[in-house]
């Protein structure tokens, strides 16, 4: 096991934190999608990092690449839904997107 790269770990935590924090406070659906993207980036860095820590750089990176593919699909769907939401609700404000509750 090589030395643990603390800076990189800190980066993962900070990026993840920013993503999660945004998800918790923003009321804008587009920003939610962006926050999801930031969140996934944290996951990817973590995977690459994990590969580096245990010396399997290839595996870590190939996993990260697969995640990029999957994540792109999700992002596309999320944005497509956001467009439809804007079209049918007339807004992307989460406070207005609360018909389903209770």
């Amino acid at each position: 096991m090589t030395t643990i790269p603390y800076i990189d770990m800190l980066t993962v935590m900070i990026v993840f934190g920013i993503g999660l924090y945004t998800l918790l406070i923003t009321r804008n659906l587009i920003k939610v999608v962006i926050a999801l993207q930031i969140l996934v980036k944290a996951g990817m860095i973590a995977l690459v990092l994990a590969g580096r820590i245990n010396g399997q750089v290839m595996t870590g990176q190939s996993i990260a690449l697969t995640v990029i593919v999957a994540d792109t699909i999700v992002a596309v769907i999320a944005l497509a839904l956001a467009v439809q939401v804007k079209k049918h609700h007339g807004t992307v404000d989460l406070d207005k997107l609360r018909n389903l509750k209770g």
């Binding site: 999660l20 998800l23 918790l24 406070i25 923003t26 009321r27 939610v32 989460l94 406070d95 997107l97 609360r98 018909n99 389903l100 509750k101 209770g102």
Partner: peptide, 14 residues
């Protein structure tokens, strides 16, 4: 208890 299902996305993430 139904008030816990706020319908607000942020709360779901919380």
């Amino acid at each position: 208890l139904r008030t816990t299902q706020t319908g607000l996305l942020n709360w779901n993430i919380a």
